[in-house]
Amino acid sequence: MFIFLIISFIFAIISLLLPRIFGHKKEEPEKNVPYECSILPFGDARVRYDVQYYLFALLFVLFDVEIVLLFPWALIFKNFANPIFILIEGIIFIMILLVGLIYAWKRGALTWRA
């Protein structure tokens, strides 16, 4: 498992080192300027971005944690002794998720206000 990790790292690093051998290098002052449609860049590039991105990330964290809780449920579902019990439990849990989604929907968290 870790061998794959190491080998793919080596693979990537070797391919990054290839241009050192075969590539060429020519210094020019304008070459290393960040690209901005052929004008000189002004201001800091790290601009403030829309808060909406943050909202979606927050929603993702909430839902992902809840979905992680669903994984063991899905795994034992088929061979569980009492199928009706586990089905109703699962449906209640997913309904709670859905209610949370509908709440976020009604509060307008899912609408992108430009």
Binding site: L18, P19, G23, K25, K26, N32, P34
Partner: peptide, 11 residues
């Protein structure tokens, strides 16, 4: 492979 490896100066 033959291309130059450019790193922008602000990066």
């Amino acid at each position: 492979i033959q291309k130059e490896d450019i790193i922008p100066k602000t990066a």
